[in-house]
Amino acid sequence: MAEIKYHKHYLPLSRPELVERLKAALKPARFEHVLRVEQTALTLAKANHVDLEAASVAALCHDYAKQRPDEDFVRVIKANHLAPELLNYGNAIWHG
């Protein structure tokens, strides 16, 4: 599938810039996973007439925080005075 061009509607990065940031931040297996998810998302977006840029950004970023330590999420929850019951969950919920 051909690479799409971002028009900076969702973030101030080009797709190659986003991909490079993800490659630097994620383990190789996770990085390859998000690239595959993007291809699936683009196929579905085309079939359903959905914004390709939105589908690409969402797919590529969906696991960006997956490898973050739990302490990072707890700190954000507390600092932003989010619902305390969020502390009952874990990374499977938090990273999303």
Rank of each mutant, 00 (worst) to 15 (best):
P28R: 08
V37Q: 04
S56R: 01
A2D: 14
P84H: 00
D72W: 13
E3T: 09
L82H: 09
L26M: 12
H49D: 11
R15T: 02
V37S: 04
D70W: 05
D63R: 08
L22I: 10
I4P: 06
I77A: 02
K8R: 15
L52I: 06
K5E: 13
H9V: 15
P16R: 01
K46I: 02
V50W: 04
K27H: 10
K23N: 12
D72T: 15
D63V: 05
V37G: 03
A2E: 14
D51N: 07
L87E: 10
A92K: 15
L35T: 02
P16N: 00
I93P: 06
A65E: 12
P28S: 07
K8S: 11
Y64W: 14
I4K: 06
W94V: 03
L52H: 04
H33E: 09
V34S: 05
K66M: 14
F31S: 05
H49A: 13
P84R: 01
Q67G: 11
H49G: 11
R75Y: 13
P16G: 02
P16D: 01
F73T: 06
H33W: 08
T40H: 12
I77L: 03
E85V: 09
R75W: 07
E53H: 03
H81I: 11
A29F: 06
A29E: 14
K8F: 12
I93S: 09
V76A: 05
L22N: 07
D63K: 09
P84T: 03
A58V: 11
L52S: 09
A24C: 07
L44N: 05
